[in-house]
Structure formats: C-alpha cells, structure tokens
C-alpha cells in the first residue's frame, strides 16, 4: 500500500502579502463539451423524431425544452469560461485584474485611498478616485464575507 501521494496543493500564498485569484472554470475542454452536448442534442432529436413518426409527437416539445436548457447551460459556461479576478497587494498598492468575456481590465489603487463599498445585493466593490470594481464575484456569500474581512483589515478599519 505504500504509495506516493498523487495529489499536491498549489501553495496558496506564494509571497507573504495577500494574493487572491479566482476564476470561473478550471477544466473546460471545448472539444469535449461540444462532443457531449452535441451528441446529447442529436440523441434527443433522433429519439423525439422517431417517436413522432410512430404517433407520439408529444416527446418533441419536451426534447426541445431540454435542448434549450442544455444550450443555456453551455452558453453560460462558455460566456464565463475565461473569466477570472485577481487581487494582489504590492507594497502600499492593491492591484486588481478582472477579465470578463475576454475583456481584461486592470486597476491599481493606493491602499490608503481604496475603499470597500457595497454594490448591489450581496456584492462588494473597491472604489478609489471614481473608479469602481466589483470583487469576490466568483465566491459564494461566505467566501465573499471572508474576502471582505481580509480586505477590510488590510485597507484599514471602519472605511465601509
């Protein structure tokens, strides 16, 4: 049973400051996804058509609804495929990089000017000199609360 552990974690902190990286997906393989959803859609259509030909056309609308649901799921995943958000403290500056639908934006704030502000229900943003960027968008609520706590500590208390 002596075996080398086959799994190992990425060290979470590669330098003593706080860095944070979240992306939406980690293992998207477009060809695989296409194969899976393409074949499912074809199978569904073939089944529905075959049943329609022997008189049971009521399978078609349900197959259609399902293909639509599958399509919506794929679309949402593809839309968010390359998205990421990274946060890093370098000295007294905080650098934020956000990529949404292939569009990357960089923000470079001074720690003593940047403030955490609420933006929308349950969401938080960093703001400095009129520029605002939402953070923690790929966390769930508790993850976001932790991030807020972490940032608040580093940006100075009582700013929000």
């Amino acid at each position: 049973m002596s075996k080398q552990p086959i799994f190992e974690s990425i060290p979470e902190h590669d330098h003593p400051g706080f860095t944070y990286f979240r992306c939406y997906a980690s293992s998207l393989d477009l060809r695989l996804m296409a194969l899976f959803f393409g074949s499912l859609a074809v199978v569904l259509l073939v089944i529905a058509t075959a049943f329609a030909m022997i008189g049971a056309w009521f399978v078609i609308p349900f197959a259609g609804v399902e293909i639509a649901a599958l399509g919506a799921a794929v679309w949402m995943i593809l839309r968010r495929a390359g998205d990421f958000e990274s946060l890093a403290f370098r000295g007294d500056r905080i650098q934020v990089e956000v990529c949404e639908r292939g569009l990357a934006r960089r923000f470079d704030f001074h720690c003593s000017w940047a403030r955490l502000v609420p933006c929308g229900p349950g969401a938080v943003a960093l703001r400095s000199h009129g520029r605002t960027v939402e953070v923690g968008r790929y966390c769930d609520e508790t993850g976001r609360q932790e991030l807020t706590r972490e940032l608040r500590g580093r940006l100075g208390a009582g700013r929000i």
Partner: peptide, 8 residues
C-alpha cells in the same frame, strides 16, 4: 436523454 420520453 430519456426524461423527455417519460414526460411525453
């Protein structure tokens, strides 16, 4: 693959 068939 089969759920629409049952629903139908």
């Amino acid at each position: 693959a089969v759920m629409p068939v049952l629903a139908g």
